[in-house]
Amino acid sequence: MRRICAVFAAVVVGALFVAPVSAEPREYEIDPEHVSVGFLVHHLGLADTLGMFREVSGSFTYDRETQELSDVKIVVQTDSVFTNHEARDEHLRGPDFLNVKEYPTMTFTADEAEPTGDNTGKLHGELTMLGTTKPLTLDVTYEGGRKYPFGDGHYAIGISARGTLHRSDHGMTYAVEDDLVGDAVKLIIEFEAIRQPASD
């Protein structure tokens, strides 16, 4: 009886932690209703200011079985910046910071993923912001996948990512020298991605 219980427990644990795998790489699109791209920037050497972008889209190709990730493209609409302070948000949209009239989007692209564990990895890519492209590495965690229990029943996966960029690398130098506004920008990325139908 003890052996039967042990075998049963092993099967249950395996079912919980082994996500469904695809037979081949599949395309995924970021669910616009379940995506958050946030950032933290130090202010006056006192505290971090938390902000986010409200309009984000993207897609990628992923094979859960091999952990191969490619064709990553995430596009952020820069005028969608939000920090819960209207005057600050307007300043961020101006030429001192995001200069949204001249650069309405910033884009992250990647084709190189480095697995660091069963559900973690490093995504090596490039961020184009203010017309300047620089390397950016994100620490990525695969949070799991499942078929939606409501709606159209699509299959989705969850992704968490973290990274840090220096805005001065992209020519955004306002208030960097006197450290009124921090140079380092901590990125907080959370989203669900919907698996697309397999192509014939």
Rank of each mutant, 00 (worst) to 15 (best):
residue 150 F to A: 13
residue 132 T to Y: 08
residue 158 G to M: 06
residue 193 A to W: 11
residue 139 D to K: 10
residue 177 E to N: 06
residue 180 L to N: 09
residue 162 R to P: 00
residue 65 E to Q: 12
residue 165 L to G: 01
residue 152 D to E: 09
residue 119 N to H: 08
residue 21 V to M: 13
residue 63 D to N: 14
residue 8 F to A: 15
residue 78 T to V: 07
residue 24 E to Q: 14
residue 140 V to L: 09
residue 76 V to P: 01
residue 146 R to L: 11
residue 92 L to F: 04
residue 183 D to G: 02
residue 188 I to G: 03
residue 38 G to M: 06
residue 130 L to W: 04
residue 36 S to N: 12
residue 92 L to E: 02
residue 49 T to G: 04
residue 129 M to P: 02
residue 136 L to C: 03
residue 23 A to L: 05
residue 25 P to Y: 00
residue 86 E to L: 05
residue 77 Q to F: 09
residue 62 Y to F: 15
residue 5 C to Q: 14
residue 56 V to T: 13
residue 156 A to N: 05
residue 184 A to L: 10
residue 152 D to C: 00
residue 20 P to Q: 13
residue 123 L to A: 03
residue 131 G to D: 06
residue 163 G to R: 02
residue 89 D to G: 02
residue 85 H to Y: 07
residue 45 G to A: 14
residue 184 A to C: 12
residue 197 P to W: 01
residue 139 D to G: 06
residue 110 A to P: 01
residue 42 H to F: 07
residue 133 T to C: 11
residue 187 L to T: 02
residue 165 L to M: 15
residue 31 D to K: 10
residue 25 P to F: 00
residue 62 Y to A: 15
residue 18 V to S: 02
residue 105 T to Y: 05
residue 3 R to T: 13
residue 120 T to S: 12
residue 2 R to I: 13
residue 49 T to W: 07
residue 113 A to Y: 03
residue 151 G to W: 08
residue 154 H to L: 06
residue 174 Y to I: 00
residue 40 L to T: 07
residue 119 N to T: 12
residue 108 F to M: 10
residue 61 T to I: 09
residue 54 R to P: 04
residue 60 F to Y: 13
residue 141 T to A: 11
residue 122 K to E: 10
residue 191 F to N: 02
residue 136 L to E: 01
residue 149 P to G: 03
residue 84 N to V: 04
residue 155 Y to F: 14
residue 86 E to D: 13
residue 134 K to H: 09
residue 128 T to R: 11
residue 29 E to A: 15
residue 85 H to K: 06
residue 16 L to G: 04
residue 43 H to Y: 07
residue 58 G to K: 10
residue 185 V to K: 02
residue 124 H to K: 14
residue 115 P to C: 10
residue 82 F to P: 01
residue 104 P to I: 08
residue 120 T to M: 03
residue 78 T to F: 05
residue 155 Y to L: 10
residue 170 H to Q: 11
residue 77 Q to W: 09
residue 115 P to S: 08
residue 116 T to P: 01
residue 110 A to N: 01
residue 159 I to L: 06
residue 71 D to G: 04
residue 95 P to M: 04
residue 31 D to Y: 15
residue 182 G to W: 00
residue 112 E to C: 00
residue 5 C to R: 15
residue 114 E to P: 02
residue 56 V to M: 11
residue 65 E to I: 03
residue 117 G to T: 09
residue 160 S to A: 09
residue 145 G to E: 09
residue 109 T to Q: 09
residue 8 F to C: 15
residue 29 E to C: 10
residue 187 L to P: 01
residue 70 S to R: 11
residue 175 A to G: 01
residue 53 F to S: 06
residue 187 L to R: 00
residue 124 H to F: 04
residue 30 I to V: 15
residue 1 M to S: 15
residue 76 V to I: 14
residue 116 T to S: 11
residue 98 L to H: 01
residue 75 V to L: 14
residue 95 P to H: 03
residue 181 V to W: 02
residue 126 E to H: 13
residue 154 H to F: 05
